[in-house]
Write a protein that binds this DNA or RNA. Structure first.
Length: 220
DNA sequence: ATCCCGAGGG
DNA sequence: CCCTCTGGAT
């Protein structure tokens, strides 16, 4: 278990490296956000952003999307992985917004997670980004970074990682930290070839020390 | 635990 | 070629 001082240092370092971390998925409203996040599973947000403008232009409202043929939706998002499931899901999602929520995106966790293609992670993103409800969404980057830095254990599942993050960081910081973890994981502590040699946290990172063992560490 | 599944990097 | 990308449903 990391010391409080180490947790604070991680928080300060991320704030210095990525003071302006934000949600990079293009969206104009909660409807577009929930669809974009649902489409982002196992896909880079760069690719999602190449697809969603055309999708939202063709289907601006839940009603438009709900009445669209699945095949037409598939064609719009074909460049994404898992596109058949995603097309079916977002159509059903739009249908459910109409039938159960008067065409609006629900603002509570239960309503969100009942939407097709929306699980814990997507619900957390929508809650924090669209509705300013404190939540700590754990995706592949957040999980990898948390485990490498030793915030949680390697064997922890996503639920345990989220619980630990919420326990160790202040509630007011959850949403911003989520995006800072994402940026840190995406651009610095990458899955492949992480930039350990230039990492300000290297001296407190077991994984980083392991990876840089035998290599020369620059002493600016 | 397994399936879904395309694009991009190395 | 292999790995990864802001996962979810069964």
């Amino acid at each position: 278990m990391l010391r409080v001082a180490e947790i604070d240092r991680i928080e300060r370092t991320l704030e210095e490296m990525f003071p302006d971390a934000f949600c990079e998925l293009i969206h104009q409203n909660p409807f577009e956000l929930v669809v974009a996040v649902a489409l982002s599973a196992q896909a880079t947000d760069v690719l999602v952003n190449q697809v969603t403008p055309g999708l939202f232009a063709a289907y601006p409202t839940p009603s438009d999307l709900a009445t669209a043929p699945v095949a037409a939706i598939e064609e719009k998002i074909k460049r994404l992985g898992l596109y058949r499931n995603k097309a079916k899901n977002i159509k059903a999602l739009a249908e459910r917004l109409i039938t159960l929520h008067e065409g609006e995106v629900p603002t509570d966790r239960v309503g969100l997670e009942a939407l097709p293609g929306v699980g814990r992670k997507t619900a957390n993103v929508v809650l924090s980004v669209a509705f300013d409800v404190p939540a700590f969404a754990v995706d592949t980057h957040v999980e990898r970074v948390s485990k490498r830095l030793g915030i949680c254990r390697w064997k922890d599942n996503v639920t345990q990682v989220e619980a630990t993050l919420m326990k160790r960081f202040k509630r007011e910081r959850w949403s911003k930290l989520h995006h800072q973890f994402i940026f840190f994981g995406r651009y610095h502590c990458k899955a492949q070839r992480p930039n350990c040699l230039e990492c300000p946290l290297l001296d407190m990172c077991r994984e980083g020390k392991k990876r840089t063992k035998g290599t020369t560490i620059p002493v600016d």
